[in-house]
């Protein structure tokens, strides 16, 4: 989380809308532990990571959908319990639960 602060500061100075995504739970082997965080701004710029690169693209898509009002804040699950496991699954075979919320507080 700490590694995100400088970029978030800059985005906030530029009045960019931001989504914060954090790993809240993992099942099986996960590349990053709960607390791993990334932030996405309205232009699709990214800082941080929630996996070893496996699901970041999908998180950006969800984050932009959240900013567009197309989805609500909440937990998104990636991995074998996901229908789209092959599209955005984890190579390690684990499952990660990522919580997305707008950074407006």
């Amino acid at each position: 989380m700490k590694e995100l602060l400088t970029d978030i500061d800059r985005w906030q100075r530029d009045a960019k809308r931001i989504v914060l995504a954090r790993v809240v739970d993992i099942e099986g082997s996960g590349p990053r532990d709960p607390g791993a965080a990334m932030a996405v701004n309205e232009d699709g710029e990214v800082v941080g990571s929630v996996s070893g690169g496996c699901v970041e693209g999908a998180v950006v898509t969800e984050a932009l959908a959240l900013l567009a009002g197309e989805r609500q804040p909440g937990v998104v699950t990636f991995g074998y319990s996901d229908d789209e496991a092959f599209a955005v699954g984890l190579t390690c075979g684990g499952t990660i639960h990522v919580f997305l919320q707008p950074l407006d507080w």
């Binding site: 989380m1 978030i8 809240v24 609500q72 909440g74 937990v75 507080w105």
Partner: peptide, 28 residues
């Protein structure tokens, strides 16, 4: 704001917990 206070504590290495409702009546 909560976020500003949170970031100050992180930078100052003050032990802190950020607690967030992830499911229930007041998500976020």
């Amino acid at each position: 704001s909560i976020y500003e206070t949170f970031s100050v504590r992180l930078r100052e290495r003050t032990p802190v917990a950020l607690i967030t409702v992830i499911d229930g009546p007041r998500v976020g």
